[in-house]
Design a protein around this nucleic acid. Structure first.
Lengths: 348, 348
DNA sequence: CCGCACTCCTAAACCGGTGTAGTGACGAGT
DNA sequence: ACTCGTCACTACACCGGTTTAGGAGTGCGG
């Protein structure tokens, strides 16, 4: 373990080698005017020879931009691991951050209050240049916090939840409606929905949209259950929905994520119900998981990676204040039919 | 958007309010000797009243500890989203970091070379105080890098892969052997293994262990396939294993992660084979997913969250140099039998 | 009464950059 | 010949902490 004491090379060394002042090096590396091409070249050459790159810490302290973006996620660890959505989202965010040599500061928090504290501390301490806010609730305290702090953020959520914050969202209401329409078109008249955590804003939106759509299109019955997104909860919900005698039992179930749909599939099997003949199942998000079950899961499908990338891009325009940081939706999830949905009552 | 210009409160303000010098405040907040209890109290009171907390950036620049830990993950985004292991691991790491008010700098990289660059840049730029290294390969370039840099790290991987680095690992060889023994004890004589990415060190270890164990215990046949950990690859591998006519077909398959086992389950169903009657399936890691399938998946089970926590704890002792930063294994995965394994050939 | 050790605290020099005011040189305008 | 303006660059004060060397006050032995 010969821990060679890394020979720290600083801006001063580069300046000396290029025969200029620190200031000149700084100007060169920030692509600011006031330097001749010749000097600029000389500086870059010296830097390359010394293997120098500006120290982000010092740069931050000196008051310029911060090259770190914050993301605090507030969901129990158990659920996170299984929710493919997050990692896909993060990887989408990263893909854009990397282009700007920007890093992601990630924190798992246990409550919204803790997140509020973390975001405030990060911002006050100049740890981050901006933040991505996810999982909005009704009357979310982060809306106020952000305005009080002046923290540049992009809110992931429908504008009705995110106050005046710049937001990027998926149009869940339309997607839910499309899901219900599809099932109704197949002939289903008794439709259920296994929703996510009730306190999450997008859950309410989906719930309301389902109410409306199913009220009109599923005259024989519409049910909704709130869960915590976990597979176990999805299994429980499915079990209770399917134990009713046939006339009171839904013939189709929409899930709020893939995991619960997988769990639902397994419950159906365990109860001796065939999918899709006896009951149709529709997943949400459409991760790879949907193609790994038997039957494969029909799903409301969207590009989560691309969503993350778009959020990151928007955050950059918020941070740089480059005007075009408008709130906007990303493409609405589209229905991808697979093996788990069919007209009701079919015996193949 | 009334961006209130946050009133930055610095150490100077606290010092002024407490009637002492900046240095005194610094001493107090770092719990260093040289201050009377009275003064100390006065300082803390002033800080509390002003809502001040030391600025990490400045603190870092001034050469003291860095409260950020790096983690670069090198796997394609598609796979990451589905691999429950990572998020669970990260959440375990976080749980310990949080206790030390330390953050996680996360980066998804596309190659080992890129990771080497990222780690070097982070360390040279004092962005991190230490790093967690995962997914070791044979002759991993990070071993040298770390020693050259003097970067404090904990390597997640068997010592045979991680050179002299402090490492924490799961004893995969023993676990694989146990898995094979269990299947053999059930009566299986033709056993296959669907492994992960061949270039990963822990895959080789498992492969070798399987070779040895299955060579002895599965005289009628032992197969191994390398994949990329994705469900699709798992499905393909399973399909090709199961298409052989019965005498050349394995009666039990061990998978290197849960996703592939789920995929395998679906392939078996699609081919009309019953699990576990016609073929037994054994998953690895034992995320919630294993309890969401039908039949439920038997698995080699371990506490990934706890693993992450232990890695973080070890990293802290490496960073502080508090002697006891010894390499050590965490508990070996244990067999958790569920519905997907049974003696071969049983017709229920 | 002086020297000495010890405690408690301050001033000032850092850390590695950024921003700004200011300097010298050079060309143009009159 | 004397301004005036630009251009290219430097010197130096920051950012918000940490860390030293050292000073003022106190207690104690000789």
């Amino acid at each position: 373990m010969t821990a060679t004491p890394t020979p720290r090379v600083t801006i001063k060394d580069v300046a000396a080698r290029a025969g200029v002042s620190k200031g000149a090096v700084s100007l060169a590396f920030n692509h600011k005017p006031g330097l001749s091409e010749a000097t600029r070249d000389r500086i870059f050459r010296a830097a390359r020879e010394l293997g120098w790159a500006p120290n982000l810490t010092a740069r931050t302290l000196a008051g310029s931009r911060v090259d770190v973006v914050g993301l605090a996620v507030c969901r129990p660890a158990r659920m996170l691991g299984l929710e493919p959505w997050y990692m896909e989202f993060v990887s989408g965010v990263e893909s854009v951050l990397a282009e700007h040599s920007c890093s992601l500061l990630l924190r798992l928090v246990r409550s919204l209050d803790e997140e509020v504290g973390v975001q405030a501390a990060w911002w006050r301490g100049r740890q981050i240049g901006g933040s991505i806010l996810v999982d909005f609730r009704a009357d979310d305290p982060r809306v106020d916090l952000v305005e009080r702090l002046g923290l540049p953020v992009v809110a992931v959520g429908h504008p009705s939840l995110t106050g005046g914050l710049t937001s990027v969202w998926t149009d869940d209401a339309t997607a839910v409606t499309e899901a219900v329409r599809y099932l109704a078109a197949l002939g289903h008249r008794r439709i259920a929905r296994v929703g996510g955590a009730a306190d999450l804003g997008h859950t309410s939106i989906r719930t309301a949209a389902f109410d409306e759509a199913a009220g009109a299109l599923a005259p024989a019955g519409a049910w909704q259950v709130a869960t915590d997104f976990s597979g176990d909860a999805g299994a429980r919900a499915t079990r209770s929905l399917l134990t009713a005698a046939p006339p009171d039992r839904p013939t189709a179930i929409v899930y709020d994520n893939d995991i619960m749909a997988v769990a639902g599939l397994s419950v159906a099997a365990e109860m001796g119900l065939r999918v899709p003949q006896d009951v149709s199942l529709l997943a949400w998000d459409d991760s790879q998981l949907c193609r790994l079950t038997h039957p494969t899961l029909s799903a409301m499908s969207h590009d989560v990676h691309g969503f993350g990338a778009e959020v990151a891009r928007t955050l950059f325009s918020v941070i740089t204040g480059s005007g075009e940081a408008e709130s906007h939706p990303v493409p609405t999830p589209v229905l991808t039919p697979r093996g788990s949905t069919a007209p009701p009552g079919i015996r193949v």
